[in-house]
Design a binder for these strands. Structure first.
Lengths: 116, 116
DNA sequence: GCGAGATGCCTAGGATGTCAAGGTATGCTG
DNA sequence: CAGCATACCTTGACATCCTAGGCATCTCGC
C-alpha cells in the first residue's frame, strides 16, 4: 500500500460518515490509526479511501469526545503505535450514528426511486 | 407548513447529497425552490428537511454549473416563482451522482456489516 | 551500505457545504 | 388588520475534508 500519491482521485467521502466508519472498525478490535485506514479500504474493497489528513483529526476528535480511548502499544511489526479502542459511550454513539445513517439511506432511496 | 422554528432539530443532511436530491426532484418536473424543499420532505416522509439557508445557495450553485436552468413563472397560487428545470448536463450529472451514491452506500454497508 | 518505499505519527491552510438567523414582499383568512 | 403561509434571498459562523507538507523508523533490494 503506497503512500499518498493518489492514483485515481476517486473515492470521495461523505461528510459525517468518517466518524461512524472509524467507530465501527475500532469496535471490531483495538487498532491503530494507520491500520484503520487500511482496514476500511480493505473491507470496502477499495471503494473507501481515508486520507491521513482526514484520519488523524478525526481520531483526535473522537478521542476528545470520549468515544475512543488510546494507548501506545507495539505492533506485530515491532513498532510503537497508538491503539484506539471503543469506549462504552463510543459504542452508544456508534449505534446512534448507524441508526441515523440507515434512516438517511432509506429516505434518500425514497426520493431517488420516485418515478411519477 | 410553518416557517423555520424547527421543532425537532433532527434531520441533518449529509453533505453532498443535497445537490443530488434537488436534481432528482427537478427531474420529475419543473418546480420552484420553495416547493422543492416541500417535495423532498414529503417524499421522504419527513425524514429529510431542507433548510432555506441550504436550499437557495444550492440552487444558485446548480444553476451556475449548468445543471439547472431557471425561468420565472406563476404558481397555481398566482404568485411569481422561479421554476427550475433540469438541463441535459444536469441529467447526466444526476446519473453520475446517483451511481456514486450507490457505490458509497454499498461500501459503507460492507463496513457496517462486518462482523468478524 | 544506501536509497526507496512502507509503516507510523502529525499539522497548517484552504475549500466547501450546511446551518442559524436574519431580511423582503405578497396573498389569504379570520 | 393580524397572522400565517408562500416565495425569494443573504450573511456569518462552523464543521469537516483535502492538499500538501513534515518527521522518524524499519525492511528490502541492489
Amino acid at each position: 500500500m503506497s503512500r499518498q500519491p493518489e492514483k485515481s482521485s476517486e473515492a470521495e467521502l461523505l461528510q459525517g460518515t468518517l466518524d461512524m466508519l472509524i467507530l465501527k472498525v475500532t469496535a471490531l478490535q483495538p487498532i491503530h490509526g494507520y491500520a484503520i485506514a487500511q482496514r476500511i479500504q480493505q473491507i470496502s474493497r477499495d471503494a473507501l479511501q481515508i486520507r491521513q489528513g482526514s484520519l488523524y483529526p478525526a481520531l483526535y476528535r473522537l478521542e476528545n469526545r470520549g468515544w475512543l480511548k488510546a494507548d501506545w502499544r507495539t505492533t506485530e511489526g515491532g513498532r510503537e503505535a497508538k491503539f484506539y479502542s471503543l469506549t462504552p459511550q463510543g459504542r452508544r454513539q456508534l449505534a446512534v450514528e448507524t441508526a441515523g445513517w440507515r434512516r438517511l439511506c432509506d429516505a434518500i432511496s425514497l426520493v431517488l426511486e420516485t418515478a411519477e
